[in-house]
Design a protein around this nucleic acid. Structure first.
Lengths: 338, 338
DNA sequence: AAAATATATGTTTGCGCAAACATAAGTCAA
DNA sequence: TTGACTTATGTTTGCGCAAACATATATTTT
């Protein structure tokens, strides 16, 4: 009977009230200490912290987040974790959100827009402060959800096209043209292209192709892989292209892994680069520096893109005016392969 | 006056009550539809879904999660996103949690145990269903928090040592011994070792060294890098080791990136592998397949470790009995470098 | 046809916290 | 010394949902 009205032990799991009882203050004061807001005297601060530690109290944000949301979660959705490009962007995002006391909640789409919509819908149920999505291509359903909920959204990697909100990335078009001009200047005329299904690569290639053809060159062969765009795949597809008739003078790859794989094929096969065959990649990943031959590539600021997008999400500024493209510079790194 | 008691527009953001009003059912029925639990007729199901869509309602888990937690969040903490080993484990985790309708919330420690403790404490404020941590080394504070809160915790990568809870990984000791025996059998006696600060590599190396010395070999040089363990770093350190006196016959690297970098140095320098110098890596990453020479390495089941750990977290089974080490098999891949 | 069961919906209640609003004591300028 | 402000704490209230507990109507079994 006596236990019914008065517990002599703390609730399990312990609540702010339990901490408050131990520290001899009100629940609200504990709340202030936990969040580090408002006025709290040094004495009380210490007592509350000690009390919390002693009974093993952990702040419960599910409860607080309910009344009003200044929720520190940020939804981050990328196509893949196997692609270093995305993990580097993720690093930038993760580092920056941490600095701003925000937490990423992740989703991986495996390059499916439908999956992306599902994942975003699910993430929104956590009332995140913001959303970071890869690319500018989304389902209509996803666009509608984002508009309806008004969640602050950053799109990363790409700035060519209509952005839903703020976009942070590079101009794929400019990148494709830049590499085309470089290869033209080097005197190459006959090209092959190796890539995957990626939308951004497609935009890049379209610009590349147009530019090449305008200058009298041709793309005589293309290989679009549906597999993971690994070094191995690059090696296999390069071998395939070079085994046929009408050998190209240069191969443009949609990423550095493919290009490095191509280089490995050439080394193993005793081909001279760039005399027998020229190679160009994309991204400027760090591992290229370790290769015995420097591959010509386009360097993209992946980490920085993540940092800036995360910073934008972190700022409480007026979202409406901020809806614009943040274009990052790219740099053509001329190596020994062109 | 009339607006005060009766809104003619829906709340912003809309709630289950708003959906219920539109669909002409009770709030509880909407809740059932949203979660897909309990009995709901086809007619009502459709009406509720339409109503939700029409007013742009998104389920709010912060609210529901409050009363009782069967929270679908899982905290996942790894040292780095730049290391493919972790991103592959993460892939396994992400895929598996998705299948079980759970969501990962991420933290990156940058190899700091103090940072890990902070991150975990923060993640716990979301009352996650479980926690996945890398490694068996943690601060005392972290151990205490995990015990106090009783959160279901999986430790991954490593099984040698006292696990906090369930561990999923390989025996680093066995891996080190296995490679030592292989190299001994090949007749090598004089070794160099290149690695980073990683605890798991240290365990591996200790077993490797003991085994080598027991068989009359010596580790004549070691390089412990504090930088990112990239191909570039491997190339630089390999060049350093081979430039001095007392050249080793074989180099054992703590990961494949370092070993591949070593190989690149050999190719660029015209060294014959394994006659001039033998190389052995660790992990069995896929990119090795694309190299012109196959590097001898130990293949570890990274993706599977992620899958199993995530599955274990997903199961609602009795945690107590499950506290044990789940040891995965490793495989020595003999390439052309030993 | 009665009883047992499966299906479908509604009502009440409280989760744990933080906003909004007190209150009260200390500090400073006039 | 009065009033204005700063600092420090407490009280009340409601956030939006899901558990627990009703009903109530179909369907099946005996």
């Amino acid at each position: 009977m006596q236990d019914k009205n008065k517990k002599n032990q703390y609730s399990n799991p312990p609540t702010m009230h339990d901490v408050a009882d131990v520290a001899g203050v009100s629940q609200m004061t504990v709340s202030r200490v936990m969040r580090g807001t408002g006025y709290v005297s040094d004495d009380v601060l210490k007592r509350v912290e000690d009390a919390a530690r002693s009974i093993g109290y952990v702040h419960n944000r599910l409860a607080g987040g309910m009344s009003k949301y200044d929720n520190p979660l940020v939804g981050v959705v990328v196509p893949s974790l196997q692609n270093r490009v995305f993990t580097e962007v993720l690093s930038g995002i993760s580092d920056t959100l941490n600095k701003n006391n925000l937490r990423p909640v992740f989703g991986v789409t495996e390059y499916s827009l439908e999956r992306e919509e599902e994942i975003v819908f699910d993430l929104l149920s956590w009332r995140p402060r913001g959303l970071i999505l890869a690319g500018l291509e989304h389902t209509d359903g996803l666009r509608r959800i984002i508009e309806q909920t008004g969640v602050k959204t950053a799109e990363i990697m790409d700035v060519d096209g209509s952005a839903l909100a703020a976009s942070f990335g590079i101009s794929q078009k400019a990148a494709g043209e830049q590499m085309a001009m470089h290869l033209i200047a080097k005197g190459y005329k006959n090209f092959a292209y190796i890539a995957g299904l990626d939308e951004r690569a497609k935009k890049r290639f379209n610009a590349f192709k147009t530019c090449i053809e305008e200058h009298g060159g041709t793309i005589s062969q293309t290989r679009i892989s549906k597999k993971t765009l690994s070094m191995k795949e690059g090696r296999v597809l390069t071998a395939d292209i070079l085994s046929g008739a009408n050998k190209p003078e240069a191969i443009y790859y949609s990423n550095d892994d493919l290009a490095a794989g191509g280089l490995m094929h050439c080394i193993a096969d005793g081909l001279k680069v760039p005399d027998d065959i020229a190679l160009a990649g994309f991204n400027g990943l760090n591992f290229l520096e370790a290769l015995p031959v420097q591959i010509t590539t386009t360097k993209t600021p992946r980490y920085d893109i993540g940092v800036e997008a995360a910073n934008w999400i972190s700022n409480k500024s007026s979202e409406k005016e901020e809806r614009r493209a943040h274009q990052f510079d790219i740099e053509l790194i001329e190596g020994d392969t062109t």
